[in-house]
Write a protein that binds this DNA or RNA. Structure first.
Lengths: 191, 191
DNA sequence: AACTTGATTGACTCATCAATCAACATAACA
DNA sequence: TGTTATGTTGATTGATGAGTCAATCAAGTT
């Protein structure tokens, strides 16, 4: 049933299947054949649309980052006060999407992968910079010159909570959000 | 030059070589042959002393945990006041040993591995429980009933800072220690 | 109808690696 | 001096998986 114009559909399906397989395995040790099968295509097609396994993994990583970025922007739209903006960023970081088991698994794997793959490291650098910048801007009216420092600490807690929840069976986004937000309040209030 | 009583020597060498290779690769995707070569023995010997690759990785993981535990105990011995004890635990977590690139890489990989390997997950559970318990005990005199909650937050920051430093080029243990300790002070002071 | 282009497959190649095994070397002991 | 324990090697096997390729099929295009 070959039709013309399948490329974007196949690419999306393969990226989605990649994330699913990575989540299932809990690591990047997945086979192109399995990914292709899940996407409902042959292994050859995966190589046709993506250069190879590496590019496929990279595309999956970028996709997750894109989703995260969109989620942050969506949350920020509904935020009025600086405190709201802070809450929005944190809530996005622990949103249900980011907290689904297979997405958590993908994030963890990508962290490790970033150690050896410069491209992956670059992507994570972008994520970290954006998170830091978002937090700093939201904190600026609340903590002026201390904003960058507080932002760094908050960013670390967010990353750390990811691991905890990833390994701890039952991830609880709202609880994680509340914890970070409470911490933010304390840090802002501390003279 | 085979002598009797080589077993402990070989085991130690293989575990050390495993950690080195994992650190070099930045992932658990290492070959038994390379590990064996680095340890100065044949690949067959690695299988002789350890059941297989899995057991070798597990032993390496346990070794790192053992080193960390010893480091915590050593730091705690020199601690007098509760504040000192707190500082000691944090300092151990960010001690030079734990912060060597190959150890960080091993930790990260083991985190990911714990998602699929129950044995690894168990080990990490022990680490997390011990860290939490140590922190809680140190915090008890400083924050009484709020101690467990503060401990959880601190543990998350510690984990999060690990990732940041692992991906951020130049790991700075003392700086990380200072950041966490400052955070602890703020949290304890907050009524 | 003939031709072109994109989509798609599955078999094939080639490399990698974990694990096994037979063989041999050395030491301890009888 | 055998005999047994331990230590050690490296060749081999068998499985797995990435990437390639020739061939096929369906839609447009002229």
């Amino acid at each position: 049933m070959p039709r013309v114009g399948m490329e974007p559909i196949r690419r999306a399906a393969l990226v989605k299947a990649t994330i699913a397989e990575v989540g299932l395995k809990g690591s990047l040790d997945v086979t192109v054949a399995r990914i292709a099968k899940r996407a409902g295509v042959s292994s050859g097609l995966a190589h046709h649309y993506f250069g190879g396994k590496e590019d496929l993994l990279f595309a999956a990583m970028r996709h997750i980052l894109t989703l995260y970025g969109a989620s942050v922007r969506a949350q920020l739209l509904r935020a009025g006060t600086p405190r709201d903006r802070l809450a929005a960023i944190i809530r996005a970081s622990f949103g249900p999407d980011n907290f689904e088991p297979h997405v958590i698994a993908a994030w963890l794997s990508f962290y490790v992968h970033a150690q050896s793959d410069p491209g992956a490291r670059r992507l994570l650098g972008i994520y970290q910079a954006r998170l830091g910048s978002n937090l700093t801007h939201a904190l600026r009216p609340l903590a002026s010159s201390r904003a960058p420092d507080i932002a760094r600490t908050l960013a670390s807690v967010i990353d750390g909570l990811y691991i905890r929840h990833a390994l701890g069976g039952a991830p609880d986004g709202p609880q994680a959000t509340a914890r970070v937000l409470a911490l933010a309040d304390v840090l802002v209030d501390a003279a």
